[in-house]
Design a protein around this nucleic acid. Sequence first.
DNA 1: CGGGACTTTGAGCTTTCTCAACGATGGTGG
DNA 2: CCACCATCGTTGAGAAAGCTCAAAGTCCCG
Lengths: 252, 252
Amino acid sequence: MAHHSSALVRASIIVTAPRPEFCERCEVRHSGVCSALDDADLHILARMASHVSVARGGYILSEGEPARYFFNITSGVAKLYKSLADGRRQITGFLRAGDFVGLAAERLYGFSAEAMEDLTLCRFDRERFGRSLPDLPSLERRLLDIACHELVAAQNQMLLLGRKSATERLATFLLHWAERDQSGCDKPVEAGPVTLRLPMTRADIADYLGLTTETVSRALSGLRRDGLISADAGGHDVVITDRRRLARLAAD
Amino acid sequence: MAHHSSALVRASIIVTAPRPEFCERCEVRHSGVCSALDDADLHILARMASHVSVARGGYILSEGEPARYFFNITSGVAKLYKSLADGRRQITGFLRAGDFVGLAAERLYGFSAEAMEDLTLCRFDRERFGRSLPDLPSLERRLLDIACHELVAAQNQMLLLGRKSATERLATFLLHWAERDQSGCDKPVEAGPVTLRLPMTRADIADYLGLTTETVSRALSGLRRDGLISADAGGHDVVITDRRRLARLAAD
DNA sequence: CGGGACTTTGAGCTTTCTCAACGATGGTGG
DNA sequence: CCACCATCGTTGAGAAAGCTCAAAGTCCCG
């Protein structure tokens, strides 16, 4: 809650009307769902896209709400999570520019989505979107691909949550995040130390890995002590110094 | 492994050529993927379906194999799971007649599927299936629906594995399984005690819930002691005697 | 009726959680 | 510009949940 009080955060969701010309110079034009569309098809989609801004800490959508919209993140980072009545939380994923939000929803959203940084998104009315799908077969195929991909990720996460130790979870998480961080840039994949920025707090990591903040902290300290990683004082910049050993620890 | 030695089990996969007339009297004609198709479309699909039998204990597919096929279960129960190198296992789902297998696959299968009872399936060549998809838009839509549904289930399971206690996991599992068991039959939903048959072993339940067999056994004994359930000697037939209290325990 | 696989229960141990204190960081208001 | 404060991260000690190891009981099937 850096820039805003909690009340202001809720108020800071800004929606603007569709502006198809946005798409032409959109940063995620060639990734995510939109990459499946040619310019003509993109125009059909663009006409029903609203542009939404959500400030850090604000909600994109909330568990239990009627699932009216799909979203496509155009900038920033968000977390998705489910909660139990007593406040326990499980983060099911961290999303970034190009990622699609809302596939895993029935009539109501089954999860909440919160902006971890100031966020911009394209918003689609689910109903209109659904009606247009038959006209955009390549889009529908792309959505199926995305859903399958998420399913694979979800199964990996189930293995992690059900069967891996705290240290193994951290190692898996760091490697996975490093991969995502690097994808898109043209560095040699296997070369030397890898630097990554973790935009989330220890509490977020804990809620993602099914641990507590203290255990996350201890496991990271352990990895640091053993020379697998090094980290800055704040703990948000991490360098993987021994990728091989970290990968062996990750256990899959 | 009741009927067969391990070697025989592997050999007991029987494949027969497409027989479109099968579909007309197929038990799952009106559930699962096929329910999305009219008779004409079904015929297109039927022409590329092989019929496969897998004996109890046999593999439908294995983690790491090239993902050549999709499957549709027509009878029996199967388990899907992922393994770590040292043998730890996480079951990601139990599947029954009408369920679709293979969506969550990239070039290679990311999981194994094993028959828990003698099993019959329809098998589709993924490549041919993919080529036919554009001609079967209702099928593609159905697959997207199925994938989204599985995604919702996966997120619920992540919450369970990451944040619920052993007893909460068991309670959730029993209620969930009871629901599946009853769906299709016309019993009043909220009435009295519910009987369910668990076709899996304690070890399977443990691998599904991220626990050990001992903990599963103890948690079930606890539920029995507290009068929420009763079970037969073998432990495979369970009666939910206090659904309300069990639901409260399930915690979501 | 016998044997292998499965289930249950017990005792002790390990990992992770809980509670608590302290330290560091970064944004805010004086 | 600096001191302050809320938030976040680290570390420690003790508690608890679940795991491991072990033994006995049960069931199913031949």
